[in-house]
Amino acid sequence: MCESNVYLVDQQGEKTLVMESVDKVIPKEGDVYLENIFGERLTVKGHIKEMALVDHSILIAE
């Protein structure tokens, strides 16, 4: 499977799970649009900080 979990990272480096099984990530100006394999959609304020696809993890910084 190619899905990843998306985490929001705060300024102290703490990670909070935002969405699981994400298969679509679209960066926009100041936001990141997410969609998972279940059809759930979410827009998160921030930017992509790191993508570790082997670990199925995407980090978004505020």
Rank of each mutant, 00 (worst) to 15 (best):
C2M: 15
E3W: 06
E3D: 11
S4G: 14
S4E: 09
V6G: 07
Y7H: 06
Y7P: 11
V9P: 03
V9C: 09
D10E: 11
D10W: 07
Q11N: 06
Q11M: 04
Q11R: 07
Q12G: 04
G13I: 03
T16N: 11
V18D: 04
M19D: 12
E20P: 06
S21D: 07
D23K: 10
K24E: 12
V25H: 00
I26Q: 05
P27D: 04
E29T: 14
E29H: 09
E29W: 03
G30Q: 03
G30C: 00
D31S: 08
L34Y: 01
N36S: 05
I37T: 07
I37M: 11
F38H: 10
G39W: 08
G39K: 02
E40T: 01
E40D: 12
R41T: 13
L42I: 01
L42H: 03
K45D: 05
G46W: 02
G46F: 00
H47Q: 05
I48F: 00
I48M: 01
E50A: 04
M51R: 06
A52K: 15
L53R: 14
L53K: 12
L53F: 15
V54I: 11
V54E: 12
D55P: 13
H56T: 15
H56E: 07
S57H: 10
I58E: 02
L59S: 09
I60T: 02
A61F: 00
E62H: 09
